[in-house]
Design a protein around this nucleic acid. Structure first.
Length: 422
RNA sequence: GUGGGCGUAGCUCAAACGGUUAGAGCGUCUGGUUGUGGCCCAGAAGGCUGGGGGUUCAAGUCCCCUCGCUCACCCCA
């Protein structure tokens, strides 16, 4: 049998309530802050991702779903949330709106990787970006938005890690300082880290290899290399977080996997950090727009994996349950009643009453069993006897007495019965 | 990309040493004499034992390959 592609998932109806809770909670938090929804294409030109995420990153090197379309263009399934939003901002002239432009999205993300707990080839992210304003207050707003969303979902125990990577003009010296530190000690680096020494020395810092991790404790810290503007930016941000009473930890080893970040980077991680620990993270990317040929557009944002949010909600036992009940199950008892049943269903639905159709004639016993299983609030039975007399049998499922209802007054009587059974 | 564990019904699991027709619970459908649900009882449907190859008189069981799931590395959300 043909099966779903590796690393993808079917989302069945029983998880819809929790999924919906996450999305609606996020939407509410966004709209409380004037963030507006945006959606961008599932496919983008491959260069959008390669030029922004960085050549040396794993994402660009081996995790993209890229293909050539029939016209010969190289396209890539969205591998990351931020670059497409920045592209859309530039392409649609959103710099003409009041700045910052505050946007949010809920979208699938595709990365070719080996599936694992909390890791999929298609996963979903909630994300937000604020474009066009370099103020540290915008960083704080973004962090507050994500933190508030988690809190509203009952996962307030995440740790906020924070760091500053400085600006491009100081990145080079910091990078060199790391090279100078690690090169004489490269015998203590693992194979991966040794390769990174040449390609992307910053990434050595978040290695989980025990010996490397120990070595990193003594490594130069990016905070010590910040230029004055970046240092002031960070100081203001920390003041704001303190004023908002948002606890944080400065983590000198936090660097993030995407190259476009500058200054602020942050991550939310669970207390008992497993391997797929990061629930959400982001940072500032003031130079990303220029990488795709747009003008200078400062920006800050985050992405958070919905599947990982769900994992953490389960951890705290805060997933909700119960599919919503339909109002009425309408049950034909004879073949001749099927048409009338469907006609009545339509009439009730026009009045805003939800109705599940029984479709096939069956015995009252079977029909009522199905009505029970469907967890409806009332069953409506139509058999030969009812057809003949122009009535239907209305039976509330809470044990109240069954009544006979003339077709003419069906909507009113059903409403009344539902009100009584609520 | 690397390494470990695991694949039997829709789900959770059985099936000594390889040995008749692969079972159970839950779920689904139907029935329990007149047209009435939940509990209970009965019956039915549902399996190429993930797929392919091999060993054997005989394979769910042993071997190889492959696909998938899973855990860790890696990476990230």
């Amino acid at each position: 049998m043909i099966q779903r592609p590796r690393g993808t998932a079917d989302r069945l109806p029983d998880m819809a309530p929790t999924w919906r809770l996450v999305i609606e909670t996020f939407q509410r938090e966004c709209e409380l802050r004037g963030f507006a929804p945006i959606s961008t294409p599932t496919i983008e030109r491959t260069e959008l991702f390669t030029r922004t995420t960085g050549d040396a990153t794993d994402l660009a090197q081996k995790e993209m779903y890229s293909f050539e379309d029939r016209g010969g263009d190289s396209l890539t399934l969205r591998s990351e949330g931020t670059a497409p939003v920045v592209r859309a901002y530039a392409q649609n002239g959103l710099h003409n709106l009041p700045q910052p432009v505050k946007l949010y999205y809920i979208t699938p993300i595709f990365r070719y990787d080996r599936p694992q707990a909390g890791r999929y080839r298609e996963h979903h992210q909630i994300g937000a970006e604020a474009l066009g304003d370099p103020s540290p207050a915008v960083d704080a707003e973004i962090i507050d938005l994500l933190r508030s969303t988690y809190e509203a979902l009952g996962i307030a125990d995440l740790r906020l890690d924070l760091n500053s990577l400085g600006d491009p003009d100081t990145r080079g010296t910091y990078r060199q300082a790391l090279v100078d530190y690690f090169t004489p000690r490269s015998d203590r680096l693992d194979h991966e880290s040794r390769e990174r020494l040449a390609t992307n020395p910053l990434r050595i810092l978040d290695s989980k290899h025990p010996a490397v991790a120990e070595l990193c404790e003594g490594a130069p810290r990016s905070l010590d290399f910040l230029g004055t503007p970046a240092r002031e930016h960070l100081a203001e941000l920390l003041d704001l977080l303190n004023a908002l009473e948002i606890p944080y930890t400065v983590n000198h080893r936090l660097v993030r996997g995407l190259d476009y970040y500058n200054r602020t980077v942050f991550e939310f991680v669970p207390p008992d950090a497993g391997s797929q620990s990061t629930v959400g993270g982001g940072g500032r990317y003031d130079y990303l727009a220029e990488l795709i040929g747009a003008g200078h557009v400062p920006g800050v944002g985050f992405g958070s994996g919905i599947e990982r949010v769900l994992l953490n909600m389960e951890r705290g036992g805060s997933t909700s349950a119960g599919p919503p009940a339909t109002d009425v199950y309408i049950a034909p008892l004879a073949d001749e009643a099927v048409a009338e049943a469907m006609r009545l269903a339509r009439q009730l639905r026009l009045a805003g009453i939800s109705v599940e159709s029984g479709f096939r004639a069956a015995s009252p016993r079977s029909q009522l069993r199905r009505a029970s299983r469907a967890r409806v609030r009332a069953a409506m039975l139509i058999g030969a006897r009812e057809l003949e007399r122009g009535v239907v049998a209305l039976k509330p499922m809470n044990g109240a007495a069954q009544t006979e209802v003339p077709l003419a007054g069906v909507v009113r009587r059903v409403r009344k019965a539902l009100a009584g059974s609520a």
